[in-house]
Nucleic acid binder design. Structure first.
Lengths: 112, 112
DNA sequence: AGAAGTACGCACCTTGAGGTAAGCTATCGC
DNA sequence: GCGATAGCTTACCTCAAGGTGCGTACTTCT
């Protein structure tokens, strides 16, 4: 999607924060418990390491998650959700509920 | 954005329905009252006719809006919102509220 | 010795949403 | 006759998100 101009309400800002292909999944997983980088990789089959790093960094910049690097060897990094991220997850859940509602609507129309 | 695989919840479906650049704005305007094509064009400065048609058709296919063409000359077409579209508008409003909240959060962080 | 795991960075390529510009049918105003 | 208005369609171009693949510094397993 290509969104730049504000569409008069804060929806664009929210979409900016959650608009990545994997961000909703990341948010969902991290709202359950913290994970390490490689664990998230395994949780999202198909994500490339580059993009995973990218999206995690963006979400960190947006204050949705917290990144904690331990100065060990081998390196260890843990990602956890923040209260702000948690609140976004709630908003996403509302949209998600609508999405399910919409899917049943579509299958009903198809049947007709 | 590029979303195809279902991310295990209905959010992807919702985003599919609302993911266009102008769809949220269209939904918002139409939730106020019905409009004609040219009126919508004027309401969304910068939208091209092609994309406006495109998004209106997609939203019609998703059952968010209703298109009514009058067989007159010059042609007249009216778009109005459906109950389903109205319910999506509510879900969007929740996300929008989060977006505003997030914006204040960002400006606070910047100030610190 | 060699392979594998960790958490990335960098360079290049693909893809599809959206933008641009033109055309089309028909009527009305000057 | 010329342009404007209405509601589109078609062909072409752009651009950034995301994918692919390779490199890295260090260690532990086999």
């Amino acid at each position: 999607m290509r969104r730049k101009e504000p569409d008069s309400c804060g929806f664009a800002a929210a979409l900016q924060a959650i608009g990545g292909k994997w961000k909703t999944s990341l948010l969902w997983e991290l709202h359950l418990r913290p994970y390490r980088f490689a664990e998230l990789r395994r949780l999202l089959p198909g994500v490339s390491e580059k993009v995973l790093t990218q999206q995690l960094r963006q979400m960190e910049a947006d204050g949705l998650i917290r990144r904690r690097a331990y100065d060990e060897v081998p390196p260890r990094v843990e990602y956890s959700i923040t209260p702000l991220g948690f609140s976004l997850n709630d908003a996403v859940t509302v949209m998600s509920a609508w999405g399910k509602h919409h899917e049943t609507w579509k299958s009903q129309r198809k049947a007709a």
